[in-house]
Each structure stands twice: as structure tokens, then as C-alpha cells.
């Protein structure tokens, strides 16, 4: 698979480390979250067959985190964003 890095262009997926579902960006608020919220965040996944937004780390490259939208049935990648931009647009700090 080739991942079309927003800054570097197409890079081989073997340069990256896979973390998982991009909902991991939405960490519960430590001030208000219940134990159940943390359990659901840490352990439960939608695991869809189809488009999946997921976090990849460019370990052998510029060490940026990316949010890749990829179809889990065909492996087709439809969009690649910097995770930083995604997190900021969701209201995460700096």
C-alpha cells in the first residue's frame, strides 16, 4: 500500500507504524470521564468492514502522525490528513 503523505507525497506503508482507529484522538476528559468512558475508549472498537479512519505514524520518515481513511475490504486509501490538523479541528488544544 502507498500512503499519500500530505507533506511528502506517496510513501510505502512499510515506513509507517499502525496504531488503530482514529477515535483514539477523542480521549475522554480526565476531569469528567467515568470508568466506563475510559473502558469504552481504551477497549471497544467499531471495527467496520468498509471505510475506516485510522492513525498511522511515519516512523521511518518525518515522524508525523496521519489520519488515513482506508477501506478495510479493498485496502483503497481515499484520504490522508495530518493528525495534528484533525485534532485541532476537533477542538483539541494546540
Amino acid at each position: 500500500m502507498l500512503i499519500n503523505h500530505p507533506l511528502l507525497g506517496p510513501r510505502d506503508s512499510s515506513e509507517f507504524i499502525y496504531l488503530g482507529d482514529a477515535t483514539l484522538i477523542d480521549r475522554p476528559d480526565p476531569e469528567t470521564a467515568s470508568a466506563q468512558d475510559w473502558h469504552d475508549y481504551a477497549y471497544l472498537r467499531d471495527n467496520p468492514a468498509g471505510p475506516h479512519r485510522e492513525l498511522w505514524f511515519h516512523e521511518a520518515g518525518d515522524r508525523s502522525w496521519l489520519v488515513v481513511t482506508r477501506n478495510t475490504v479493498t485496502h483503497e486509501i481515499t484520504s490522508v490528513e495530518l493528525a495534528r490538523d484533525v485534532a485541532r479541528s476537533q477542538g483539541r488544544s494546540k
Partner: peptide, 18 residues
């Protein structure tokens, strides 16, 4: 293998990735 797909029909989220 397909647990995620099947159990989503019962609106369950699982501690599993395929």
C-alpha cells in the same frame, strides 16, 4: 474474523479489531 461485522447488527461494539 467477522465478529465486528456480525455483532454490529446487534449494535454491539467489541474489544476486537479484524
Amino acid at each position: 474474523g467477522n465478529s465486528g461485522k456480525l455483532m454490529s447488527m446487534a449494535e454491539m461494539r467489541l474489544p476486537i479489531e479484524s
